[in-house]
């Protein structure tokens, strides 16, 4: 059993990667903030914290699905912005919500299709989609404004039986993510495809009879859908559409996934790691806010963390 313990501590020989270290940091952060700041451990601040973390958690789950395959989706930030923009057009929710879903499926499909069929590097495909989608979002809503369906605002900010709804929404999203990644054949196939890609044998999973191309396209669609969900949540929180609200999520989601022990080369990672990573990011923002640290420096610190985490991961390939 000591071997197992050692594996968990070092993240070696584990498909979940190194998640125990960020967990410890989260716990230490939690405890020290509770002790040092009176305002921290209040249910008001905690539900705020979760509300802040929620979009990142959602989009990071989608990002993780793609990263497990050895890919990456840099268009999620723009997809979030587009969602808020679409939700804030002057139309009833029965129109806007299907519109968002269709848009997400289209964006995800184009990403996936470019990658598997047209042989475009995932980062380049999704980077160009980032600009295309952002352009569309800005065409629809050049500056922040408009109003989103009332029920979204209610859901995000309201309470049910005296409990903040965000406490109920979180488990549902996590359950969906868990089902997709760890509780289905599809999830296992994601790991299989990513494991082959990380070893430099892209067709390893294909030789087991897995239809890798279709699975990869589906993964990019999932990623876009999760981004749309995160966008809907954000739209509810800010009660309007904003074409710039999503921008930071492209890198933040990658950071959250990478902090959680998921290998960017694919095949290694776990949902709990990603949740820990997203929480760590939220805690960081929350802590930095409580400590009155400039919002601008927070961006630098997050960028520094991303660099540190990715520099510690090993990769065989050089370049993109």
């Amino acid at each position: 059993m000591t071997a197992t313990l050692k594996n968990i501590l070092t993240g070696k020989n584990s498909r979940q990667g190194l998640w125990i270290l960020p967990l410890i940091i989260v716990v230490i952060g939690f405890v020290s903030l509770s002790v040092s700041t009176e305002d921290f451990a209040t249910s008001q601040n905690l539900s705020n914290l979760l509300k802040q973390a929620m979009p990142l958690i959602i989009v990071a789950i989608g990002q993780m699905i793609v990263i497990l395959l050895g890919g990456m989706d840099l268009s999620v930030g723009s997809m979030i912005s587009l969602t808020t923009a679409l939700l804030a057009i002057d139309a009833p929710a029965v129109v806007t919500i299907p519109l968002v879903v269709v848009a997400a499926v289209m964006v995800g499909f184009i990403n996936g299709f470019s990658v598997v069929r047209l042989n475009v590097h995932p980062i380049i495909a999704t980077l160009s989609m980032q600009f295309i989608v952002l352009g569309v979002a800005k065409l629809i809503r050049p500056v922040a404004g408009g109003s989103v369906p009332e029920f979204l605002v209610q859901w995000v900010n309201g309470t049910i039986f005296g409990v903040s709804t965000v406490f109920l929404l979180t488990p549902i999203v996590i359950l969906i993510g868990w089902k997709l990644i760890h509780g289905s054949r599809y999830g296992l196939h994601l790991f299989a495809i990513g494991g082959g890609a990380a070893e430099g044998q892209e067709d390893a999973a294909h030789n087991f009879g897995i239809s890798d191309r279709r699975n990869i396209i589906v993964a990019y669609i999932c990623s876009a859908l999760f981004a749309a969900l995160a966008g809907a949540f954000l739209a509810g929180r800010i009660a309007s559409g904003d074409p710039n609200v999503g921008t930071i999520f492209a890198l933040d989601s990658v950071t959250a996934v990478a902090i959680g022990g998921t290998q960017l080369s694919g095949g290694i990672g776990g949902l709990h790691g990603t949740l820990i990573g997203a929480l760590l990011m939220a805690l960081l923002s929350n802590g930095m806010n409580l400590a009155n640290l400039s919002a601008f420096l927070q961006g630098s610190i997050k960028g520094g963390i991303l660099l540190l985490v990715v520099a510690l991961q090993s990769r065989k390939k050089m370049g993109l």
Binding site: G299, S300, G304, L306, L307, R315, K316
Partner: peptide, 15 residues
């Protein structure tokens, strides 16, 4: 360190 060039240089820009 073989970091993905897009990620590395985007992060440097953010910093």
């Amino acid at each position: 360190r073989r970091v993905s060039a897009v990620i590395a240089t985007l992060a440097v820009t953010t910093i």
